[in-house]
Amino acid sequence: MERLNPADAGPETRANVLTVTDLQTAFPTRRGTVRAVDGVSFDVREGETLGLVGESGSGKSVTAMSILRLVAAPGRIESGRIELAGQDVLALEGEELRRVRGSIAGMVFQNPMTALNPSFTVGWQLMEALRAHGVRDPEELQRRVEQALAAVGMPDPARQLDTYPHQMSGGMRQRVVIAMGMINEPRLLIADEPTTALDVTIQAQVLNLMKRLTREHGTALLLITHNMGVIARMCDRVAVMYAGEIVEEALVRTLFSAPKHPYTSGLLRSIPRADHGRGKVPTMTGFPPDMAAPPSGCRFADRCPYVVDACLSDRPALVEVESAHKTRCLRVQELGGSVADLTVRGVA
């Protein structure tokens, strides 16, 4: 906690805490190999919050699980490089890998009802996380767990130690899950849909908490979600995933105001808003592709309003079109400007 807060430094000068390069994670299925993550590259800098957004099946959760090599068999990381605080995660073996988990990168999972072990008290589980990284002294265990519980806003932390998960509400359990992810003071917190299972008023509380904690400790946050509102609230930068690939990456404000990929703009326009009244929402047609046999060209081609012949045959690369703004679209130069402007003109 004494660490210099990296958030104080400018974003350009910060070092990467996580660098993922050309990651491929595959699952064998009856219908052939599904490459759920297919050539994904991104980085997370010290103290920043990167959002990884996409719909179900886009590969965002598999990406998150790949980072700490928690992909369940028969899923397998086929190739790529994951560099976490200078360590090559894919080259680590046994004990080395275990020591990285929780201490350099912590995780927060989606469902607080199932993410905690029902047979052990909250205090025991948090102590277990500390014990895994060499804390043995009972007094220190007790003190640090109480601290962690207080930090996530649990009333009366000392008493909560003997509480079982089922005796807590969903919001409280998710606070415990966050405390567990943060207790070893990792440099990166990976949160996979941390508020999806919670009620909206509780979601707001939990998001605020995560924002405050990561800021106070200078922890970088990789936030995986399908919810653009959560992205808007939490993130500095965003990477948009579609069909196993990152299709766009930009600073959060740029992404929402001037998206360059047709999928991003389509997604943004199809979100109903709580401050809007009744009315039709613009939609994208069609479905994401079958990942057992993905199209050889652009994976969004069959849903894209700007599709041309070249899109069907050539697989576009993720290119930086402006500073800190990457997109994977063959027609990005030609279409120019932002897709949002175009769509307003093109589709009424």
Binding site: L70, R98, R101, M107, N117, F120, A129, A132, N184
Partner: peptide, 25 residues
Amino acid sequence: DPYITTARAVGVKRRRVHYVHALRN
């Protein structure tokens, strides 16, 4: 069960995950 993944993600030793966290349930 997801809590097994939670235990692994926090760095609990493999044997301990199996013989304590899993067995108890």
